[in-house]
Design a protein around this nucleic acid. Structure first.
Length: 265
DNA sequence: TTACAGGTCTTGT
DNA sequence: ACAAGACCTGTA
């Protein structure tokens, strides 16, 4: 157990921001449990103090990066403030503690493929059951982690109790593809936003929206601006003459998160 | 019953 | 290039 101080971060806001489908609230206090690759973490918030169930090494090597501590979110706040955009400023104030986590790329690919034309409740259920059926364990030998390529059989992916529907075809394909092309994930990490976006779009079941979610949440390309039904409505309602993307060049994905959080919370 | 959920694919123009 | 229509499934 270690204690760290982090400003401008709110666990409950992150948990309900729609970027992670595997965070679980495990107590009345704002305590959340989740995994990243093979690590399991429990974290509690009290103001700007955070209590993590890990040692100093895992904090430095894994979770510091995961929580995107090095990104300065004040730059985004200033741009929003300077824009005189009342709606966007209110949205920002509402979700001020949201950060773009640096989550595991493979988990982002699979979970956002599941998310298409779907609802959060069913997405969470499918992901939970997938982890249970595959029964892969973290480095602690106790907690379930997300199944990597080769660890989810076709039978499991097609198991109707998972409720994946037609998406199971896509998942069978992507699991096969990633297993057959072991360099694919690392190559994606080395690409620019545009390159990674086009590469992801080549895979069946990944369209513009999911590709942008993977770029934003799995590769931390914060230029990516995923447009879903909610964002489409916001753009139509608040920006009928068009949204000025140029103004938010380099931070558009963070702006998108404030808009999205405000819409669903 | 119909519509909708953090869309994408296929087909027809 | 662009516009329908289909698509698994659970919930309101």
């Amino acid at each position: 157990m270690i204690e760290v101080v982090i400003d401008n971060m709110n666990l409950t806001q992150i948990a309900t921001s729609g970027q992670c489908f595997t965070w679980k609230r495990i107590s009345d206090k704002p305590t959340y449990a989740f995994t990243s690759f093979d690590r399991y973490l429990e974290i509690t918030q009290s103001g700007n103090h955070f209590y993590l169930s890990c040692d100093e090494d895992d904090w430095k090597n894994i979770w510091y990066r995961y929580f995107d501590i090095d990104t300065d979110y004040r730059d985004v706040a200033n741009r929003i403030l300077n824009s005189q955009d009342t709606y966007l400023y209110e949205a920002y104030k509402h979700g001020e503690g949201v950060r773009i986590l640096r989550q595991d790329l493979w988990e982002m690919i699979v979970t956002f493929m599941i998310s298409q034309n779907n609802n959060i409740k069913r997405i969470t259920k499918s992901v939970d059951l997938l982890k249970v059926k595959c029964a892969c364990l973290c480095n602690d030998g106790v907690h379930l982690r997300f199944p990597r390529p080769g660890e989810a059989s076709e039978d499991i992916l097609r198991d109707q109790t998972l409720g994946l529907g037609y998406r199971s075809d896509y998942l069978v394909e992507i699991y096969e593809y990633a297993l057959k092309h072991p360099e694919w994930l690392d190559n994606l990490r080395d690409m620019s936003y545009d390159e990674a976006y086009s590469e992801l779009m080549n895979r069946k079941g990944i369209g513009p929206k999911v590709a942008n979610c993977i770029c934003l949440f799995g590769l931390h390309h914060i230029d990516a601006f995923p447009i879903d039904t909610h964002i489409k409505q916001i753009l139509a309602n608040h920006y009928p003459q068009g949204f000025d993307f140029k103004r938010y060049e380099g931070v558009a994905g963070i702006v998108q998160q404030y808009m999205f959080y405000d819409k669903i919370n």
